[in-house]
Amino acid sequence: MSAPALDVQGVSVAYGGGRLALRNATLALQPGRICGLVGMNGAGKSTLFKTIMGFLPPLRGQVQVFGEPVRQAQKAGVIAYVPQAEDVDWDFPVSVRDVVTMGRQGRMGLLRRPSAADRDAVQAALARVSMTDFAERQIGELSGGQRKRAFLARALAQDARLLLLDEPFGGVDVGTSEAITGLLSDLADSGRSVLVSTHDLGTLETFCDDVALIADRTVLTVGPTAQTLTAGNLARAFGGRSPLHDPARIPERALEVR
């Protein structure tokens, strides 16, 4: 059997200071599947992404991507990562096209001049997120949803085999949200693997093959969506530590699922 797209084995990390930010988290993602990462704010979703990317060095455990250490996979351009909020200077003198082209930069030659193939890939990525008309805009001139789509296009242009998307649905309108789910399904159909965190439990079933529930800084459980999204599991993820916790505290959306 081939190596999983993503293999997180018993990883613990800390941000400095004594408290762990992630405790013994384990998660595997097979190629061609979409895994939704679900949990309350502060449960550790973004921390898990940063750990997978190697920005937080694990105290214990290890992360592998297609059977390789993360850094090697990054150098091979295998992983695309779209953080929750792009921590960039929106007044920076770059256009949307410039930003999307940066997705290709790892594979360009010594002087990083984009080739015809690079330009085509950028054009295709822009078209895929309906941003062609905004390609020459300076990034600060975009709306919130357009900014998200521009950075999503950069990840697409990278043509990575594993995509890590941290809250791509945060603060976007319904249209953009549907466009993103359609995009993720297409990516999975073409053999890409996607780990995507979200708050919206209602739509999980429509596009996620797997779900990972994350709570109190660790992965509670991960598996096929239907088996994993049970009322009991959701209560554990959203209702506090005790599985027998008062169901009234489960968010309404969570209850709608089952």
Binding site: M53, G77, M102, Q105
Partner: peptide, 10 residues
């Protein structure tokens, strides 16, 4: 512009 992305692509 974006050191995080620079690192992400190797």
């Amino acid at each position: 512009f974006d050191a995080t992305h620079a690192r992400s692509i190797g």
